[in-house]
Every structure is written in structure tokens, then in C-alpha cells.
Write a protein that binds this DNA or RNA. Structure first.
Length: 505
RNA sequence: CGGGGUGUAGCGCAGUCUGGCUAGCGCAUCUGGUUUGGGACCAGAGGGUCGUAGGUUCGAAUCCUAUCACCCCGACCA
């Protein structure tokens, strides 16, 4: 009878991490590939998760003075050409619209007709189109700052795609701001990075390292790029959000000028910042286990699912009535300013099948209610993250459920933080560096690596080694800004700061 | 775009090397029954132009050619 595997997801993380990731998404019904190459379909459970992220982030943006707006999907090709580095960075992955009509090809099919005078590109990011509008809107220092965000889809024609982590089309938000001074723009850049870090740690329960990107890893066209980096369970780094100080690069390219208080014409200072549906990937890879998705309660589409258990129709009615009452009692409790999200699963399925359905989808709490529980006015409570399950008096559940959810949220964060700390090492020589990033089995690499914190003198010096080991400099942690200088782990040359080195997504 | 691999039922696969009965198996689905605090069991049923297009042959899932799609490894990236 026991044909069931020991884990709901196969292979396990240890067996084959990338395949495990795909299987978790499938088992939790978050998304799947579409007929359009490289583009995914986000299914209801995955989209609900994204909507929760959107709701929280949007609130944070508003609280920091930003407003939402919407700019076009299409960008005239000439706009992209205005900022040299920007062109170089994105030209290779742009989808281009060249025609505006279809006509019959005479063989039952269609062919493009009506060539456009100037091709349009599908936005890979919107600095140029938004900048063009800002140039019109900004005349005086009184027009500044402009603090705008847009929720949108963007397209980057990627060669290799992975659900949520890298797809040809993805959903994101992009904030674009204009300021009168460099200091103010820099402050905005840092502020939004802090917002992202706050969101990642307190809502996603994903510990992150705030840092500055090196020149080689910077956003094309930026003077400075700040990012938050997270460690996934396979110890690879994932960039979870970026905030760019664009200096006057775009304002010069697009003539965003204003008259300052002394009447002089000056170029404005701009920033941009964004997070994408990639965050869903980060969430999956940080918390999920070999039984499927594990969700941080604060972002879970459902906080708890109630599973009625009964044998016959008489019991069914009684149990269901109890469950509905329990649901409405729970729904009257608020957490994070929102009512608890509770569903009852009364589908006519086998108990085990139903239970595993919700385990794989990562619902934080499973509340099982059968006739015996009814008799004791108790509920059988199972927690998704640690597998703990116990019977609780109904009244205790109602009074403690917020505590339980918050404790789970904290446990998830602490567990992820422990993993990050355990796999972050200071390295001061090439031998140890190579050892950390070289798998024992080259053909099917086991989980290895981590974050290496190393002094380095120049990107050029370490580039060949990094390329060989497939390692990148993730960032220069902001926390290390004031550290004493040291010596490059590779060349021994004097080095001002340490960087975080890791394999990355 | 370079190297490798795979396309057979909704999903996962066998069969291909060595061409030959009506193309199979597991899971899922549907029907009937038995079960019921837990990923159940028995019996039966439906579902395929074997990725696509040509070719070789008495005969092709199997051999040949072309083509498309997807996966893995490189180069590039949120």
C-alpha cells in the first residue's frame, strides 16, 4: 500500500536542486511554461502571492511619498539610443516591433504588412520613455522632486529562461524619480534600497545583504547601483532588488533641465529602482522543502486551510457548520491590518490527498476538524514549516493564532539567516577561494560554495579566476564601508574594501 | 549562436540499436463496488494520425534526409 514516496517533491534538494525547484512550482501550481517561448503563465496561487507582494510594496512606496502612473509598453527605438551605456546594456535583448498590420499571405496564413517608419521596442525598462516625459514636466526647481512608480510588464529576450527567475516577459515595478541635487537623489536611492530590505526581511522572511555593485555589475547608465543580495538554499546568491543612482546621465541625454533658485539652468539628478516577480523565485528557494512550497505567513495567499473530516452525511453537516463558524471567527481577527485569510476545503477528496495538496502549496496552518474534535471543542493544528501538529482548544487557537503565525514568520527568517551566516566565510587566499567554489563532483555538482567575503584590489585582477570558477562579485556590503583596508586575496595588493563573492542566479 | 540530449495517451516512461501480430506500461481520468482520522483496494472503460515533412521498403515508432520544439552545458542577464 505504501507506494507513496517519502517526500512529496522528487527529486529532493540534495539530489538535484534545479529540478527540485521546477517540481515545487509545479506541485504548488504557481506557474507553468506557455506556448510562447520563454514566457510563463502565472497561475492563481502564484499570482495571489504576487498580489500580496504588490499590495505591501505599494503601501511602502506610497508611505515614502511616491505616486503610481503608467507609461507606454512601446518605446521608439531612437529613445533607447540616447544613452550610450544604456543602449549597450539592453540592445541584445530587445523585442522589436516593425509592422502594424497583418495581411493574408495567400496560403491561408498571415504575414506582417505596413512597416513602421521607426521601429518600436518593447520596453526592457522605462528610463528613456519616462525620461522623455519628465523632460517636458520639469521646468523649475519647484517641479521637483518627481516621485513616480509604475507597475508594469517588461520584456528582455533571454536565451535561457527559468520560471520566475528569468523569463522573457516579467512583471515588476519600476520607480523613477527626479531631484534637484545629487545628495537628494542619492538619499532616494538609499531610501528605496532600505524599503526593499525591509520588505525582504520582514515580509518575505528572506535575510538580505545591502551592498553596492562594482563598476562591472552596475546597471547600464547608472553612476551607482545598490542591491540586496539573498542566499538561496543551494548557497547561490540571488539579486532580489536594485536601486540606481543615475547621476545626470539620463537627464543630460534627455534634456531634463530646470531653473534653480538662483535662476541658473541645471541638469536634474535621477534615480530608478525595481523589484520583479523574481521575488517569487527567491521566496521559493529560500523557504521551501522536500515536501513542496513553504510560505512566510505574512505573504501567504491563505493563512490557514480548514479540513473538515467526517464519515457520513449527518457528521458532514455538523462538522461543516462548526468549520464555517471557525472560519468566520478567524476571519474577524486582523493581522497586518488585514483579516486573516482562511479557506475551507470541503472537496470530496481522500483525507491524505487533500492534506498533501495543501502541504505542497505551502499553506502555513492546516486546521483539521473531525467529530472527535467537535466533541472536545478542539482543533487539530498542523504547522507547515516544522511539521509540528497538536490538538488545541478552539478558544486557544483563536487567541493564539496570530502568535503562532508570527512565530512561524520569525522561524523562517531565523532559519534562512542561520544558513546565510553558516555559509558566509572570510577568505584571504586563492587556495581557500578555489576550494570553496569547486564542487567535488564536476559532472553533477553537489550543493557547495557560499558567500566569500574577500578583500580585492581590482575587478580586472580577479576577473579570470572568477570566470574560471563561475563566481561573481555580488556587492560591496554597505555594512563594511568603514572597515580598515587589507590585502587582495589573490594578488596581495592593498585593497580598500571587501566584496561578497558567490555563484549567482 | 556553439556542444550534447530528448520528442510515443493529460503526466511519467518502455519499445528504436537488430524494421514484422491489433503500439504497450505506470500514474491520472470516467463507471460500478468495497473502504474511510488520512497520499486506499478490486473490476471495467475511454483516451495515440509515435514532434512535423519527405524518402527507403511488401511492411517504418524503429532506417535515411530535412525541419521544428523542448531540456542540459557554455557566452549574456532582474
Amino acid at each position: 500500500m505504501n507506494k507513496a514516496p517519502k517526500t512529496a517533491i522528487q527529486p529532493t534538494r540534495a539530489d538535484d536542486y534545479p529540478e527540485w525547484y521546477q517540481q515545487v512550482i509545479k506541485a504548488a501550481d504557481l506557474a507553468e511554461n506557455s506556448p510562447v517561448r520563454g514566457c510563463m503563465v502565472i497561475k492563481p496561487w502564484g499570482y495571489a502571492l504576487w498580489e500580496n507582494m504588490q499590495r505591501v510594496l505599494d503601501g511602502m512606496f506610497k508611505a515614502t511619498g511616491h505616486q503610481n502612473a503608467y507609461f507606454p509598453l512601446f518605446i521608439p527605438m531612437s529613445y533607447l539610443e540616447k544613452e550610450a551605456e544604456h543602449v549597450e546594456g539592453f540592445a541584445k535583448e530587445c523585442a522589436v516591433v516593425t509592422h502594424h498590420r497583418l495581411e493574408p499571405d495567400g496560403q491561408g496564413g498571415l504575414r506582417p504588412a505596413g512597416p513602421l517608419e521607426e521601429p518600436l521596442i518593447v520596453r526592457p525598462t522605462s528610463e528613456t520613455i519616462i525620461g522623455a516625459m519628465y523632460a517636458k514636466w520639469v521646468q523649475s526647481y519647484r517641479d521637483l522632486p518627481i516621485l513616480i512608480n509604475q507597475w508594469a510588464n517588461v520584456v528582455r529576450w533571454e536565451l535561457r529562461t527559468r520560471l520566475f527567475l528569468r523569463t522573457a516577459e516579467f512583471l515588476w515595478q519600476e520607480g523613477h524619480t527626479v531631484h534637484a541635487t545629487a545628495e537628494e537623489a542619492m538619499e532616494e536611492t538609499r531610501k528605496m534600497l532600505d524599503v526593499y530590505a525591509d520588505f525582504a526581511e520582514n515580509y518575505m522572511a528572506v535575510p538580505v545583504i545591502k551592498g553596492e555593485k562594482t563598476a562591472g555589475e552596475r546597471f547600464p547608465g547608472a553612476d551607482m547601483t545598490l542591491a540586496i543580495e539573498a542566499m538561496m538554499q543551494d548557497r547561490k546568491a540571488l539579486q532580489a532588488g536594485t536601486s540606481h543612482f543615475l547621476g545626470q546621465n539620463f537627464s543630460k541625454a534627455q534634456e531634463i533641465k530646470f531653473q534653480d533658485q538662483s535662476g541658473n539652468l541645471a541638469y536634474a539628478w535621477t534615480t530608478s529602482w525595481g523589484v520583479s516577480t523574481r521575488l517569487v523565485g527567491a521566496l521559493i528557494m529560500t523557504h521551501s522543502d522536500d515536501d513542496g512550497l513553504v510560505l512566510p505567513p505574512r505573504l501567504a495567499p491563505s493563512h490557514a486551510v480548514i479540513l473538515p473530516i467526517y464519515r457520513d452525511d449527518a457528521q458532514r453537516d455538523e462538522v461543516l457548520a462548526y468549520c464555517r463558524k471557525l472560519r468566520s471567527d478567524l476571519q474577524s481577527i486582523t493581522w497586518d491590518g488585514q483579516p486573516l485569510r482562511i479557506e475551507i476545503d470541503d472537496r470530496d477528496l481522500r483525507g491524505g490527498e487533500k492534506k498533501w495538496y495543501h502541504v505542497k502549496r505551502g499553506v502555513p496552518l492546516r486546521l483539521e476538524v473531525g467529530p472527535k474534535d467537535l466533541a472536545q471543542d478542539a482543533v487539530f493544528v498542523a504547522q507547515r514549516d516544522n511539521g509540528e501538529q497538536k490538538s488545541m482548544p478552539r478558544t486557544a487557537l483563536l487567541s493564539d493564532c496570530i502568535t503562532i503565525l508570527q512565530a512561524m514568520q520569525d522561524r523562517l527568517f531565523q532559519k534562512a539567516l542561520d544558513l546565510q551566516i553558516k555559509n558566509t566565510v572570510e577568505i584571504d587566499n586563492e587556495k581557500d577561494f578555489r576550494k570553496l567554489f569547486t564542487p567535488k563532483n564536476a559532472d553533477s555538482p553537489e550543493i557547495h560554495g557560499g558567500f566569500a567575503v574577500c578583500y580585492f584590489a581590482s575587478e580586472e585582477d580577479v576577473a579570470p579566476l572568477l570566470q574560471e570558477l563561475k563566481v561573481t562579485i555580488r556587492c560591496l556590503p554597505l555594512a563594511n564601508v568603514d572597515e580598515p583596508p587589507g590585502k587582495c586575496f589573490l594578488t596581495g595588493k592593498p585593497a580598500a574594501r571587501r566584496g561578497i563573492f558567490a555563484k549567482a542566479y
